[in-house]
Design a binder for these strands. Structure first.
Lengths: 204, 204, 204, 204
DNA sequence: TATGAATGAGGGTTCATTCAT
DNA sequence: TATGAATGAACCCTCATTCAT
């Protein structure tokens, strides 16, 4: 129960400023090169530390990834879920959610989100379960919002699971191709996708 | 530059039967564990070869991945693109394309497709460009089909690029969550997604 | 079931000539500096190999120690136990055993024996159990020989366990102080200890 | 060369109360896991200190081992040698010595003794010489006691060196196998060994 | 075609130790 | 006295690759 332990992390909870900076740096690298292809050496150097020095702030490489992903999930929940759960109309809720979600992915802000998406099978064991549980919660939220909309007669009778995953695919695939300097602005993408997802491609 | 090299493959062209079998085996492993996490040792063993023996059939690990991906693209083009390019009605063409594409992902057939999707940033340099060019061709095909449908007044005026990537997200994200033994059959997923993508979520 | 596995070791069984040489070299180093203080680097260098090359012959450092100890136990059983188990008179048997045992320790032959004695608590888990079981067999052999001698009225009524461990202490402690070039020859030590152990220190 | 150093210890001389407690704690760990396998981190933690804090009390890990061993030798000399040097009859002296020595090893009291015995080759250089010199003194004491007994006609004519090392082997090997909760009490072991060593195994 | 042997580079991690505060 | 931060060196081990046979 010494000070070091206290200040560092309470298991993926809040971290010291320095630790936060390290997570940030590590996320940038892992996002760019992939988890497996990014060495601790490299991360340490990017942090202005030696490999050994880096280990004052993290427990292991795996744990570092978990911390990054946890932070990413925090970010997502704060910037997406928390912003929309209060919306009463389930269709408006889903539309707002899609907008927030696309923006989160398109804005350069969040390498963490990209990492969560790309390294979806990297973490195994307890750590993997921890992250997957939080992802699952999002799927459930989407499913139940769709179901609620169906019950209210606001949307057509579709399978909520298929709809949820179609929603996610539409929104998250973006990380694979979107370029901030490309011909499409993030708003164009968000608006276009909402329009498509809710109104469909075909003429009415 | 020995005889073996000459006979082997003309760089992602047709391969000998034995080489084909090796690609198959390697794909299974890489699909299951990821490229970086799959060792040459492991691959060699699974092929009933020693590491050194394996190198008679492939040039390098990177090249092996390229070969797998190229084969995956062949497969995709043969089983998806080739089946639908002939369809005159652009909407029917896109619907058939989506059906074929979802099926390709859901059916266990093609670990190669999964690898192409997951390792989308692993290959760098010339090899990466080669694959990306073929992917781009698919995007262009989707975009122009959408544009054609718009021109004919069959679908609403949407941004063809956004539509193409929404199409892709909807269809390809499936590899991240679909389980063959899950509660949804592959047909349910394909039909559900076509329905959603073309008719939209909201009531008309 | 490839050739490599076949030729190498059938789990601490017979080893290839090269492997034998490596065990020999490693034993010399570990004997001199202790297991924990001897690096794989060092061992590899002494074998004229790189670290990576060394790993073609061994599985791990722990396994290397196990192999050395197993070989030492083989040596011991062959040069001590096997030579004396056939002797009918239990007292003569124990005397011969002591002679052989002292010689084994004093002769420079066997760094392996020294390692077994010194690193008696280093190996844990299954490997440790394996070696300990063989040691225990030796203790049992001594105990039952003593008991047999008591039953025949050849030796005084003493606790066989105490006698067995006194025997072992007398004989094995030698490894801690004996120097081949010292003032005492190995025969003097062996004879002196047999005399002492069986006749006792005090005048009769 | 700060104030702390000055006050601390005059190299294996008397230590402050706090230092004593640290030696005690460190000895417990080193005894249980071995010198090489015990980390400074671990020791510091067990002392309720950080690694850096620990270094206010010790100079180095090697020096810590020396201090423990020195303290062990103090203990031994006080509890064994000092208790028996005054005994006039050399045979009684040796018997008492054996009794005290066995007890010292069997009683859990002294991890330090176990460390001295087990890590007999760990300390090198000046530190190693220092401890070995004290050990040698014990051997000389045993040798001369035996010689004295021979001169007085109390024991048979044996080589005093062999007798001394047989004595030590008998008595010290105990640390390798004795368990406080085993079937033999420490008194049984001590009595049995004295009986054996002085009267011999064979019937008279 | 296929092998065992071998390697250089690097993997993540831990070590005892130092030092400004 | 005691700390957190930091380090260089070393830890055991695995990697993709090469090459004589």
């Amino acid at each position: 129960m010494n000070a070091a332990t206290k200040r560092r992390r309470d298991d993926t909870g809040t971290a010291s400023l320095r630790t936060q900076a390290i997570l940030e740096t590590a996320a940038k690298l892992i996002c760019a090169k992939g988890y497996a292809a990014t060495g601790m050496q490299e991360i340490a150097e990017a942090c202005g530390l030696t490999k050994a020095g880096l280990y004052h702030y993290i427990e292991s490489k795996e744990n570092l990834l978990l911390a990054i992903m946890s932070y990413g999930m925090d970010l997502f929940e704060e910037q997406v879920l928390l912003q929309v759960v209060g919306i009463e109309d389930p269709v408006e809720r889903l539309k707002a959610c899609m907008a927030k979600n696309v923006t989160l992915v398109t804005r350069g802000w969040s390498k963490e989100i990209t990492i969560i998406l790309h390294e979806h099978a990297t973490l195994t064991g307890a750590a993997g379960k921890q992250i997957n549980a939080r992802k699952k919660r999002y799927v459930r939220f989407l499913e139940s919002s769709v179901q609620e909309a169906i019950d209210r007669g606001l949307v057509r009778k579709v399978d909520p699971t298929v709809a949820a995953y179609a929603f996610l695919g539409t929104v998250l695939w973006v990380y694979k191709w979107f370029l901030p300097e490309g011909k499409l602005s993030d708003e164009q993408v968000a608006d276009g996708m909402i329009d498509l997802f809710f109104k469909g491609l075909e003429v009415r």
